[in-house]
Amino acid sequence: MRIFADKLPAQLQRELKNVYLIFGNEPLLLSESRDAVITAAKEAGFSEKHYFTLDAQLDWNQVFDCCQALSLFSDKKIIELEVPESGINAAAGKSLVELAEQLNPDVLLIVFGSKLTRQQENAKWFKALHQHGMWVSCLTPDIQRLPQFVQARCRKLNLHPDAQALQMLAQWHEGNLLALVQSLEKLVLLYPDGELTLVRLEEALNRHNHFTPFHWVDALLAGKASRSQRILRQLEAEGVEPVILLRTLQKELTLVVRYKHELQTMPLAQLFDKYRVWQSKRPLYSAILQRLTLKQLNRAFKLLTQAEILTKTQYDQSPWPVIAQITLELCIPEQVNVIPVSV
């Protein structure tokens, strides 16, 4: 069974599973989910904890020893296995499958790491462990879900933001939930009555949102002009290398052009299935495929080339205006005054 991190406390109150697979890209949710499982396990009598990293130096005999059947007077054990950024190789995957077969009620297993790929979700080790327990998804809430996430956090702290304050809290802390937690704790101290307005927020807080090139690209795919420009301005202010943005966008546009060609011979849903496109990305690709023609996409590639040449050869001329032009043309092509492209 799969649940989102915010549903984990309620699940732990109902039942303690044998295995918890905790994966995602949000450090705050990963940390809180691990702490919640460990706390619940200790309350249930799991007093001994062991931690291992699934790297090449791991001695699997130590892990298997922890899973041996316990005597009447032995302590129940928590085993934490951290999956490194490099993922799990074939040998480690085989050992995890074997580990799943050795689990017993006196052992609670926590496997955690960064966001899973589709290949990892379909791996034998993941399926073997998943059938024994719970998969906890710790993904950063997107901009649509973030206000509800903020509202829930405020409710726990007896904070009562009005509609404008709630929206501002979400915007100011997008991509930086650790800062959100700190800001809410500060607001609790500053305003004991819990009432939050836009004026109070502006007096108490600074912006803490954190954007990545992926936020920018997703906004471009969706055609959100204002949001993509806002993200672009912040990335520029933070000193992000333009070439990182260009490479990230180039990869996505290459896929979009391929999809555009193949749409001439197959339905969109079938095309997404063929390329195993994530469900969360399908609305974004659908939006740009409906919005732009092949001619407009090819022009975007020419602008990308122009921006890359400026980045690598013209040190006295900034590529950011060209990147801003790309942003506008991809979002609202019919309303943009097209500038000549020379490469």
Score class of each variant (00 low, 15 high):
91 A>M: 09
226 S>A: 13
84 P>V: 01
271 L>W: 06
89 N>G: 12
305 T>G: 12
19 V>N: 03
57 Q>C: 10
280 S>R: 09
143 I>W: 11
24 G>W: 04
66 C>W: 01
154 C>I: 02
309 I>E: 15
246 L>I: 11
196 L>H: 00
26 E>M: 05
122 N>R: 10
45 G>T: 01
138 C>F: 11
257 V>G: 10
314 Q>D: 13
236 E>C: 04
310 L>F: 13
11 Q>G: 03
156 K>S: 09
181 V>N: 09
72 L>F: 11
217 V>T: 03
246 L>H: 02
10 A>D: 10
214 F>W: 14
48 E>G: 06
263 L>K: 05
127 K>H: 04
316 D>V: 15
185 E>G: 08
86 S>Y: 03
144 Q>F: 15
222 A>H: 11
132 H>A: 00
271 L>R: 10
132 H>W: 00
187 L>I: 09
157 L>R: 12
157 L>I: 04
271 L>P: 03
56 A>C: 08
120 Q>T: 04
219 A>K: 05
204 A>I: 08
101 E>W: 06
218 D>I: 07
281 K>S: 13
1 M>V: 09
117 T>Q: 02
161 P>I: 07
322 V>H: 10
297 L>R: 05
215 H>F: 08
329 E>D: 05
269 A>P: 09
194 G>E: 08
147 P>T: 07
26 E>K: 01
291 R>M: 07
59 D>N: 15
285 Y>Q: 00
316 D>W: 15
100 A>G: 13
